[in-house]
Each structure stands twice: as C-alpha cells, then as structure tokens.
Design a protein around this nucleic acid. Structure first.
Length: 570
RNA sequence: CGGGCCGUAGCGCAGCCUGGUAGCGCGCUUGCUUGGGGUGCAAGAGGUCGCGAGUUCGAAUCUCGCCGGCCCGACCA
C-alpha cells in the first residue's frame, strides 16, 4: 500500500490523558482513538494488527480441532437467570430492555449461551468431546476503565468451551488449550508466563493464567526461575523468611506490658525494640457464609499480610470484611490495636502456618494500651493452622528454598476447568455407553485479543515508539526512498516494493513527499519491523536495511534486498 | 462507589487569582525552500472557552448545578 494514500494519524505530541506506554503509543502512532471512558475506535493500523492476531488464534484453535462459532452478543435474561449469574454478575453486566419491556443483556462471557446450545443438541457420549469457540465483542460495565485498551468496557475475546464425558476427557481438552495458547503467544512474539490461578468465581478445579510482565499490569504473580514454580499472588505459596531474631528459648508465661498509644504493628515493634517478625498480628473479620455471618480471628506474623483468597478457601466462606471498630469493642472489650488471641473463646481462631512452632511472641492483651509478652501458640491459645498469608518479597520456594520473584503482570489469557457448574445449573446431560444419563463436564478458555496487542507494545517499545513483533505488526516492512523527487530512488523503491509484494511480504511504500526524518520517525513510531531505505548509495547499487528492534543497520545490494527481507521474516 | 486532578482551535498548553480585545507552540492549507533523522521563510484557515442557571452594565474568568475525561483505591480478557 502507498503511505501517501493511507490514514495513519500519528501525533508528534503526547496526548495528555495517556499514562501507560501502550495507551500513549497506540494513540500517538494512530492505531486507536478514544470515544468514551473504556470505549475505543480501532483505526486502520490497530485493525490490521488485530486481524493478524486473530488469524494466528484461528489457526491454532483449528489445529486442536476447535470449531468457530459466532454467538449472539445480545442475550435474553432467561439463560442468565438459569445459571444464577443474572444477579451474580451484578453491576458489571450491561442490561437493557426491549420495546416490550423484556430484560436483555450484552454478553460479558458465553458459558450460558454455549451450554444452552449444547443441551439442546448433544445427546450421546459419541458426540463428545467438542470444542467450540468464537472471537467476539464482549461488554463489561467496568467500575473503572483505565490504561487505554488494558481495561475497557467493550473488547474482543476469543472464548472457547470444551464439552467432555468425564474428568480425564476434560484434562485432555484443557491440556490442548494450554499448548495452543503457548503456540499462539509465541507466534505473536510475546514473552509470557503461565501461572496457577484461583478459579474462585468461575468454579471448577484448576485454572491457569497467561501473563505478560509489565508495570502497567494489575496482577501480581510469584515466579521461581530455578524450579519453574509460577502462581498468581492470590494463591502462591512460599517458605517465609525466618524471624529476624530467634524466639526466647525458655518456657515463659505471658506477661502484660504497658504499651500506651502503640496501636499498629510497627508502632508496637518500635516501642518494644523488637522486629515485626516477633509480633502476632490479630485481624478480626466478619465472614459471610452465604447469608450467615460470623466473626473470625485471623492471626499472622507481624510482617505478613492476609491472603483473601486463601482465607476464603480455608474457612469456607464466600467473602469477608474487616470488622468495624464497634463490633470489635463488643467482641473483645478492647479497641483495635490491642487485640490478641489469648483468652478468646467467642469465635474460631485461624493462625497462619508461619506461627506454628513459634514461642514467646508479643500479641495484644485485649485490654486497651496493653500487649502480652511471651505468648506461645498452642500453649497460650489454640488455633487452626493453615497457610493464609500472602507471599512476601524475600520468601523462597516452598519445597526447595530457591529464590522467588514477585512480578507485576497483565493477564492476556485464562484457562479454566469449569467442571459441572453450568451443565448442572442448565441441565446439560448425554447418555453414556451404558445408556445412563450423565452430566457433561466443561472447560472454558479466554484470550483478550487487544491485550495481546497491548502486551506487545508494553514489552517492545522505546523512546522512538513501538517495536512490533513482525507477526502482528500492521506491516512487516516499509520501503522508504529518502527523496521521492529523485526519479532513480523513486523507481528503485517502486521495484523493491513490487518484488516484496511478489514474495508475499506485507509491505508498505512510503511515497510521501516528506523529509526523510519525518518518514523515519513515523515508521519507528508505528513499529514496522523492517525498513528499506533507498538513498545516496543507490548509485553503487546498495540500499540500507534497518531492523526496528535494536536499530541494527545492514547494507544490502539492491538486487538482493527483497529476498534478504523475505528470509528474515520466515 | 470513595479520594485527587482536569475540560479554552485537531493535539499540547497559557489566560482565570485581580471580570472588559481569546492567545502561544505543534499540526493543517497555499506558495517558495530543503532533501539522511520531525528543514526554513511567508501568507492563511480554524473557537457558541464542556453544558445550564445565577451574580454583573459586562463572565473563559466569580457562584451553584449538571455532564464528560484522566489518575489512585475495592472488581477482571
């Protein structure tokens, strides 16, 4: 294509509202334009990249036998009511009414629709397994859209759904997806990590997330380079760093210590001249067991944080909140800041496993302005021990003690073993080989299409702009005559362009009557991986090739340049 | 939803405190110039100052209300 005829509105100045790199650069490079909070129009360049990402996804999905559908984005309320998610999805679902006042919504995911198709049609184990997928626009009324295309209210998702006769079958479908996802992201030129994830809200037994390491991300993951361990911080486990100082070894009885106005762990530690690892943190929560609530005391080592996900799983509650100060007053007879486990009998006590085996620690005395010294878990109070803490910087891998890293990441894909949640709720069964009716077991698998684009931009950008992976760049190469009014240069550029097209290279001809600097800057900004510059060495039959990533320059004979580029691309 | 910031030309901003002529840079148009890293010169086009009400002889500027956007926290591809 000829640049002079294209709409590629690059901006010299940085748009004020864009903070994260992908947002800023996709705007500057003329890929996207905003239309509202979390609503974007994709212009020519974005659409070109997205089309290439979709092609890769389709090829790899087809390779595992997945069949492409296109489901309705506009859904009647009924199927969502059946699964229980009409209310479960809450405010995140876009809802509307038709002219007859019937309730509808815009699909935010398609388990319900897929299950409703399957239950109407699948009758026999002989029809299984099935993998159905689509690439479709999803709508989510995000409480806070942000960071350009990273968190938006309308986006493209590749979502697939597997239907199997039994759990081993699901394992196969799941593994196929895991491998297909690895291939997809590799082909897209993205560096990613696969982490174990919490499957909480979606239900089911296993789930993994595909993550791109970037500060623009919103998730923290824990990885171990040595062992390959990788998990979302929500469910990551670790060996804690040992206490800063050893516990006093003697068998001692609790003693009251006056700690006037020392409320936080840090204050108490500083006041007593002890490290926070010698303190017990007491956290009172009100846990919700599906309508019934009750107070629970959670205990952690002073420097540790409670993991919401782990705590929910351990106590078996749906969710919990911190107790209000008045509730704490009623339950303990003391204010937050002086709470501890000793003498507590009116609620269950859960202690983090890092406290097991410790002795003579400091905890609140349940008396304002007092703490207790020499508190020994197991002797001075009884508790249920479990891993309920978040992994901390410095913790090590649980089995080997190898170092762990905590990374900030963005989620680009997620695979779930759903289990029977939807087939039960919506009545999806088939006859097995004994003629007995059995529930179908399901999996669901998502890829955020624009997030792949964002991930590439976040990973590969520099002061000059984007350095797109060739497989998903809007163009693979650009031919740039330095001076378009030089007839020889123009002709040579035209020839190289034609040869590249003939070799199947997705090439752009920068035929604009612009200064060379402008053309170089634009090509670098939008991220075209290869630039063929035709300039003053043309007289010697030489052209210059610059690789966008790393700005490596090579001089190549004019006659060979097309084949040279082609070989670099395959 | 809670907290913070911001709406003035396509983009980036000044003007607002102290009310009276709407301004700068980039971009855009035309002509010339230049031709290896956003070239230079000249002449132009482009604005109901987010919307509405109020105060005032007079509002971009002061007051109130609304709408929209961005960022930080609770939610997820």
């Amino acid at each position: 294509m000829f640049w002079s005829q294209l709409f590629i509105p690059t901006l010299r100045e940085v748009p004020a509202d864009a903070e994260v790199a992908s947002h800023r650069l996709l705007l500057r490079a003329g890929y996207i334009r905003p239309m509202g909070a979390g609503i974007y129009n994709y212009l020519f360049l974005a659409q070109r990249s997205i089309t290439k990402i979709q092609r890769i996804i389709r090829e790899e999905m087809e390779a595992i036998g997945a069949q492409e559908f296109l489901l309705a984005a506009l859904n009647p309320a009924e199927i969502w009511q059946e699964s229980g998610r009409w209310t479960g999805m809450g405010q995140n679902m876009f809802r509307l009414k038709d002219r007859f006042n019937r309730d509808l919504c815009l699909g935010m995911t398609h388990e319900e629709v897929m299950t409703s198709i399957a239950r109407g049609e699948l009758r026999s184990y002989k029809q299984l397994p099935q993998i159905w997928y689509q690439i479709q626009t999803k709508f989510r009324d995000e409480p806070r859209p942000k960071s350009g295309l990273l968190r938006v209210r309308q986006f493209l998702m590749k979502d697939s759904y597997s239907f199997d006769i039994d759990a081993p079958g699901l394992d196969v479908s799941y593994e196929k997806h895991r491998q297909a996802y690895c291939k997809i992201f590799e082909r897209c030129g993205i560096e990613y990590v696969v982490v174990d994830a919490d499957s909480g809200a979606m239900g089911g037994s296993a789930s993994q997330e595909f993550m791109v390491a970037t500060d623009a991300g919103e998730d923290l993951v824990v990885v171990c380079k040595q062992t390959g361990y990788a998990a979302n911080l929500e469910k990551a486990v670790s060996r804690p760093v040992p206490p800063t100082i050893p516990d006093p070894a003697e068998a001692l009885d609790p003693v009251e210590i006056h700690t006037p106005n020392q409320k936080s762990i840090d204050e108490v530690a500083a006041f007593l001249k002890l490290p926070t690892t010698s303190l017990i943190k007491s956290f009172v929560v009100i846990a919700d067991f599906g309508g019934k609530t009750k107070p629970i005391l959670a205990l952690l080592r002073g420097n540790h944080q409670l993991s919401e996900t782990k705590f929910n799983a351990v106590v078996g509650c749906k969710e919990f909140r911190a107790a209000h100060p008045e509730e704490i007053r009623d339950l303990f007879g003391a204010d937050p800041g002086s709470l501890g486990p000793v003498g507590v009998t009116n609620m269950p006590i859960y202690a983090d496993s890092a406290l097991e085996g410790r002795q003579n620690m400091v905890a609140g005395a349940n008396k304002d302005d007092y703490h207790l010294g020499n508190v020994t878990p197991g002797e001075d109070f009884k508790a249920t021990y479990a891993d309920i803490r978040q992994v901390e910087a410095g913790d090590t891998e649980i089995n080997t003690g190898a170092p762990l890293e905590i990374l900030k990441t963005m989620e680009i894909g997620h695979i779930f073993k759903l289990g029977y949640k939807y087939s039960k709720a919506m009545g999806l069964d088939v006859l097995d080989e004994n003629g007995k009716e059995v529930k179908v077991i399901m999996g669901s698998y998502g890829i955020g299409v624009e997030r792949v684009l964002c991930g590439a931009v976040e990973l590969y950008n520099d002061a000059d702009g984007i350095s797109m992976p060739a497989s998903i760049a809007p163009f693979e190469a650009v031919v740039t005559p330095v001076n378009i009014s030089d007839a020889a240069q123009k002709q040579a550029a035209q020839d190289v362009y034609t040869q590249l097209k003939g070799l199947g290279v997705d090439v752009l001809f920068d035929d604009r009557d612009e200064r060379p600097g402008v053309k170089f800057k634009d090509a670098e900004l939008i991220g075209i991986p290869w630039r063929i510059t035709i300039g003053k060495k043309l007289a010697q039959g030489i052209v210059e090739v610059v690789e966008r990533r790393g700005k490596v320059m090579s001089e190549v004979p004019l006659a060979e340049v097309a084949a040279w580029i082609k070989s670099k691309l395959s």
